[in-house]
Amino acid sequence: MKVQELILIIEDDDAISKMVSLSLHQQGYKTLVTPDIKSALRLLNANSPDLILLDLGLPDGDGKGLIKTVRSELSIPIIVVSARHEEKEVIASLDAGADDYVMKPFSIDELLARIRSAQRRFLGLQPMVNVILCHEIKLDIEHHLAWNGDELLKLTPTEFNLLKYFILHRNQVLPYARILKDVWGVGYQNEMQYLRTYINTLRKKIETDTARPSYIQTELGIGYRFICEHFDNTISLEKD
């Protein structure tokens, strides 16, 4: 029998923690609820949770310290929960090592999707492959080629690298500065206009409706997320 996974919920609002643990129980998770960071640290030592859900607005202070402690000792996903207008805190938490975030008010479906996707990423590194399929988009990393359905995409080197970066970090929230640093290089972290421009041109090439994008989602004030629910890296490239 599969062992039930344990989720540590650090949240000081009873109504929210009850609702969240109720829905997680329904999904077959076990939960542990604690209202502050001090007791959370104690619980972390006594139990070994498989995932942490951390509210950023706790009364006893700074969640980032906790994230750093967890990161240095354990290899488990951390998802932060934040209120609107706290984008800076979210980015700081992501930089400190949190894996994802949800913003209040969030729906349970949204939270469950984040939890599953964070867990999938932690299951282990993907084997290095050269061809990746994500919905309709097929990427041949070795030959620098990309298709949308049957159509070969004409991408500039930057667009290709950006798309490759997104697909390799699919479903993950990617803060602006991180994308800029990883795709363009150190020193480009603040060149937002590069990112906005290339996202715009890339969307025109891969999205059916650019105003209702299905791949590149904007996470307002934080970054982008490449949605890829049907993912396949086992396909072989047909020779044409």
Binding site: R196, I199, T210, T218
Partner: peptide, 10 residues
């Protein structure tokens, strides 16, 4: 820098 397409999408 804001892209209106992005903004309308959100």
């Amino acid at each position: 820098w804001c892209d209106f397409e992005d903004i309308i999408g959100v």
